[in-house]
Write a protein that binds this DNA or RNA. Structure first.
Length: 264
DNA sequence: ATGGCCTGGGTACCAGGA
């Protein structure tokens, strides 16, 4: 099965690229973040027409997350919103079951945090704590939590660690809580387990040609149940979707692995 | 030089992003 996650920076602005991505890769599950769409404007019909069911949590002009699954696999909404998060109206967590795979899938857009020590940074830490709590509740069942974690797990995930000294996304507090999500949920970082030393950036600033200069961060992750990690075949981004007409500032991340019921 | 770019809202410019 193919699992993918992509921060699209507006689903309505990016719908042509998303449909192109679905056709190119035919992912079984696609997790979307920063859909930036009002609930009644989510393009459910267009995605269904392309062959994917969706369960979304939409908050208007900011944030917004969704789980898509191939129509033949089915999709059963579980929840929209994360128990314990501070601002549920921001629409940062959505969860669904994919019956055809026997898999629970969650799409998450973690709070940015802006500046260390700010009120929103404290909310970011609380959001990560709530994620760890939820991951713990879900551990033991086949699970993927994917999305924009707004945390670079290690220095190798940052193009210039010195330039990020004292900034969000790299603090030990954020990294410790992200590890707690993995530990409590018994999850592995699919890219890192396959590529121990590669940077694997997933985001580049639109400005100053950062993408073409290789100045990125690895902040989008696919966290999959450790029980599934033996069946991991590959994991990486598709750079073509960070190029071309109207790209997102994030590239999509894809993983190919054996499904839970494969007996692997 | 802490900005350069992109989004939606709305129709001038601003918040937010990371």
């Amino acid at each position: 099965m193919i699992l993918a996650t992509w921060n699209v920076n507006s689903l309505r602005a990016r719908l042509p690229r998303v449909l192109e991505f679905l056709e190119a890769h035919a992912p079984d599950v696609l997790l979307l973040q920063e859909t930036k769409v009002a609930p009644d404007q989510f393009p459910e019909a267009e995605l269904r027409e392309a062959g994917w069911l969706s369960h979304h949590h939409s908050g208007g002009r900011w944030a917004g997350v969704a789980v898509l699954a191939k129509a033949e696999l089915g999709l059963e909404p579980v929840r929209a919103g994360l128990p314990g998060e501070v601002r549920g109206e921001e629409a940062r967590w959505v969860e669904a079951d994919v019956p055809g795979l026997g898999l629970r899938a969650a799409s998450v857009y973690v709070v940015n945090g802006r500046e260390v020590g700010s009120e929103t940074f404290a909310e970011k830490l609380r959001f990560l704590e709530a994620m760890a709590e939820r991951a713990g509740e879900l551990s033991g069942t086949p699970l993927v939590i994917g999305g924009d974690m707004n945390v670079a797990p290690q220095d190798v995930d940052v193009y210039d660690p010195a330039a990020f000294a004292g900034a969000t996304h790299v603090t030990e507090e954020e990294r410790t809580l992200l590890r707690a999500v993995q530990e409590r949920g018994d999850l592995v970082d699919a890219f890192r387990v396959l590529e121990p030393g590669a940077p694997g950036f997933t985001w580049w600033d639109y400005r100053q040609g950062h993408f073409h200069r290789g100045l990125g961060l690895r902040i989008d992750l696919l966290l999959v149940s450790a029980a599934l990690s033996g069946g991991l075949r590959s994991c990486g981004i598709d750079r073509d979707f960070r190029k071309g007409p109207k790209p997102s500032d994030h590239a999509p991340l894809l993983a190919e692995l054996d499904p839970p019921d494969s007996g692997a």
